[in-house]
Design a protein around this nucleic acid. Structure first.
Length: 600
RNA sequence: UGCCCGAUGGUGUAACGGUAGCACAGCAGACUCUGAAUCUGUUUGUCAUGGUUCAAAUCCAUGUCGGGCAACCA
């Protein structure tokens, strides 16, 4: 037996076509270091689809000893905002914490690319600094910003002009569109480099109004791939930018800025979603046309995430927020990272989900049950069990002395011995769950029923002797007797009764607001066949109730996760105040009984 | 319409010319002081047609279906 066989098996390493490519590059020593990046546009909050991308890019950095830069892809000031910059940083930090936070590439605050000489050529480079906890105070570092490269990108544009590979075009947007569609050359295509340079400099100086001129690459006019038909590189937009202020009135287009940003940062693997596949030839053309001295980055594409019962478009999520159909970007019903976090999901659960769904080029629809499984699986292992009654009915144990209180032992987490035990008070008057009693029990109902017995978890076996109703016929209380020897550990405690239910002592229970969240949409594909997603909003996606909790929950902690036994997983909401607890239902427990009952 | 990409059970994924496997979901059962968890078993699959080969999910051709692009958005 070799020693290696005694090693604890390592966590499974993901495998997919992109990691295969990276592994091959590592094997052939193609790059000194693998360098990826996560480049969101700060025009909305990150959602679970971005989480997939974050896990991929940081996962690769982690598995291959590389770095993953966080970069704001902020080349369109009209849509972007500092609020989003801040939320993006918070969400990324949360998702990669204790996993890949030592692979997070940042840069010193305010730093812009250095001008260096590489192989005798002028070159721009902005190296990453790892945000290793002890290295630098966190305040000294910040994410990368594409807008920090506007000077360099402008310089590259002039280089293209000088090489005769770009020209200033005076066509209107509509004309440009038509010419490109028809494969017709712009009448301005053959302006001289000198004239182009002059016009471009004047564009920069603000001499021309928005939309009057653009800088275009001079590639072809009729390539089959539209993105090679003299694509736009720069447009005039007299708008202040959240990061560069009023410095610029021309802004580079995505295609021009992105590949150059990758190059400036020394990115090796530029991973994006499938819709950019047709842009790849342009990505390569720009970099190759500039005769850059350092190794060029390459683009690889994978399928974005689609989830059932979910919409993922930032624009539509913003619509939900703007029209107050949810309470905000971090509403626990939102598929945003901040919403998912507020709901009580842990980063580990989200990462496991990302691992489970894999990476391919196939545009599929992932069933939310895969996400739900990852959440339950994680919460089952970590959550503290508590007794809580969501919809109470009163139970009086008629043979239990008035005024007597017993402190019973309860296990905090059967999945984790180290979680220990706690005490819960038992007394004559209790609350049990409304669903745990049936006056006319359906088949296979093994909870409390008239004349029937059930075990109160950690306490006694009780028998329902009398159902008390008011004049209107509403259930008021249940009068029961307890087998006083049947307490956990007692003489008849081994007696088998089919059902065990949860309960709280009426006198000791703590009231709390509980927010019961459910799916936001009633249809698996909210937008199927062009239907308006707002027409299939689930009217019951949030129900707010006041629940009765066991008293230990008074000391609930925001970072802890709880399972209210037999019901669901919960986490404290940030709206909680001392003495005013608010819990969010993260996800219900699997409910085989509900399924059975539905069979009718 | 042109160009690009894709297609493996209900869903998502693996198999890289040599036994179609895993996860979720489903179903059945065991266990249970959580109708949870756990455990056992199990239904269901290579888009089609040709070709190459001793051998094809895999390579080739054609077709079908699905997705993407054709923004002075990213």
């Amino acid at each position: 037996m070799s020693l290696e066989n005694k090693e604890v098996p390592a966590a499974p390493t993901p495998s997919d076509f992109i990691r295969d490519i990276v592994a091959a590059h590592v094997a052939e020593n193609k790059y000194p270091r693998i360098h990826t990046r996560f480049p969101p546009e700060p025009n909305g909050y990150l959602h679970i689809g971005h989480a997939k991308s974050i896990c991929l890019n940081f996962g690769i950095a982690r598995e291959f000893g590389g770095v993953c830069n966080l970069r704001m892809d902020d080349t369109n000031p009209a849509k972007e905002d500092i609020e989003y910059v801040e939320s993006i940083q918070a969400d990324v930090n949360w998702l990669i914490s204790a996993w890949a936070d030592d692979k997070l590439g940042l840069k010193p605050k305010g730093k812009t690319p250095e001008t260096i000489a590489e192989e005798g050529k002028r070159d721009f480079y902005l190296p990453a600094v790892l945000s290793t906890p002890n290295a630098q105070p966190a305040t000294a570092l910040e994410p990368f910003y594409a807008s920090d490269y506007f000077d360099q990108i402008y310089d590259y544009a002039e280089q293209l002009i000088e090489k005769g590979k770009a020209f200033v075009c005076d066509l209107t947007p509509e004309e440009t569109d038509e010419y490109r569609r028809n494969g017709k050359a712009s009448p301005f295509r053959d302006r001289s480099p000198a004239e182009n340079l002059n016009l471009f400099q004047r564009m920069k100086a603000g001499e021309f109004p928005d939309g009057s001129r653009v800088l275009r690459a001079k590639i072809t006019v009729d390539a089959a791939n539209i993105w090679l038909r003299d694509p736009l590189l720069y447009r005039i937009k007299k708008t202040d930018h959240h990061h560069t202020g009023a410095k610029w009135c021309i802004y580079p287009m995505y295609d021009f800025a992105h590949c150059l940003s990758d190059y400036i940062e020394g990115i090796t693997h530029s991973i994006c979603t499938l819709e950019f596949e047709v842009h790849r030839p342009l990505y390569d053309w720009i970099l190759e046309s500039l005769s850059l001295p350092r190794p060029l980055p390459h683009q690889y594409e994978f399928a974005r995430l689609s989830l059932s019962y979910t919409i993922m478009s930032k624009r539509k999520l913003m619509q939900l927020v703007d029209e107050q159909l949810v309470t905000g970007w971090d509403d626990p019903r939102m598929p945003t990272i901040s919403g998912i976090r507020r709901r009580g999901v842990t980063p580990e659960a989200l990462r496991n989900f990302a691992y489970n769904i894999g990476i391919t080029k196939y545009n599929g629809l992932t069933d939310v049950s895969v996400l739900e499984f990852a959440i339950r699986d994680d919460l089952n292992k970590r959550s503290l069990r508590r007794l809580a009654v969501l919809r109470p009915i009163k139970v009086v144990i008629t043979n239990y002395p008035e005024g007597k209180v017993e402190e019973l032992d309860a296990v905090n987490n059967p999945e984790d011995e180290n979680a220990g035990k706690r005490k819960i008070p038992f007394a004559r008057e209790l609350f049990i769950e409304r669903d745990d009693f049936a006056e006319v029990p359906p088949p296979k109902f093994f909870r409390l029923k008239p004349g029937g017995e059930v075990r109160l978890k950690y306490a006694y076996i009780i028998k329902c002797e009398e159902v008390v109703k008011d004049a209107a016929g509403n259930l008021v209380e249940l009068r029961c007797t307890a087998d006083l020897d049947s307490k956990t550990g007692g003489a008849t405690s081994a007696r088998k009764v089919k059902g065990t239910i949860h309960w709280v002592s009426a006198a000791h229970a703590v009231d709390a607001e509980v927010r019961l969240y459910d799916r936001l949409f009633t249809e698996a594909e909210p937008e199927k066949d062009g239907r308006d997603f707002k027409s299939v909003l689930n009217p019951h996606s949030l129900e707010v109730i006041t629940a009765k909790l066991e008293p230990s929950l008074q000391e609930a902690k925001p970072e802890a996760r709880y399972q209210f036994e037999r019901l669901a997983y919960f986490a404290l909401d940030l709206d909680s105040k001392p003495g005013q607890l608010v819990f969010n239902r993260t996800i219900t427990l699997k409910d085989a009984w509900a399924k059975e009952a539905h069979k009718g």
